[in-house]
Structures are given as C-alpha cells and as structure tokens.
C-alpha cells in the first residue's frame, strides 16, 4: 500500500514538472518574440540598440 502511494505521488510530480517547464518555456519564448522580434514601430524603436547588440534580425 505504501509503495503504491509513493509511485502515484512520484508520477504526479513528474507530470507537473514537465507541465510547468513547458508553460514557463512557452512564456519565455513569447517574451523573446515580443522584446526581440516583433516589428511594431514602438517596440522596435525602444529595443533597437539591444536587438542589434544581441544579433537579432533587425529592420
């Protein structure tokens, strides 16, 4: 009985790590696109120097 409970808890925490990792990675990618790649004029002008320095395709 004890063994069974442990197994379930472990697999649950495994799923939550994967889910949390995927969610946070997706948020990070989204933030990267907004700050580094979206070509809207205001964002582009604000981030212009950083985009050049980090080697993101600019203009």
């Amino acid at each position: 009985m004890t063994t069974q409970t442990q197994t379930i808890t472990q697999s649950k925490s495994g799923i939550s790590t994967l889910g949390a990792a995927l969610l946070v990675a997706a948020m990070g990618l989204g933030l990267m696109v907004v700050t580094g790649h979206v070509q809207a004029a205001t964002l582009h002008d604000a981030a212009h120097d950083v985009r050049h320095a980090t080697g993101f395709p600019c203009h």
Binding site: G14, T17, L18, A20, A21, L22, V24, A25, M27, G28, L29, G30, L31, M32, T35, G36, A46, A47, D49, V50, T54
Partner: peptide, 29 residues
Amino acid sequence: RDGLSIVFTMLIYSAYAMVMLAAMALAEE
C-alpha cells in the same frame, strides 16, 4: 534611449532564463 536599452536587455535575458530554467528543471529530474 539607454534606459530603454537597460529595461529591454533585462527582459530579454529574463526570457532566456525562463527557457533555460525550464530545461534545467527537466534535466535535474
């Protein structure tokens, strides 16, 4: 201009960190 550069650099490196830490958490597991 340079103030915006500082803010955006911190945002971009936070974005990098989110992706890298997600991978780190999976690797640690």
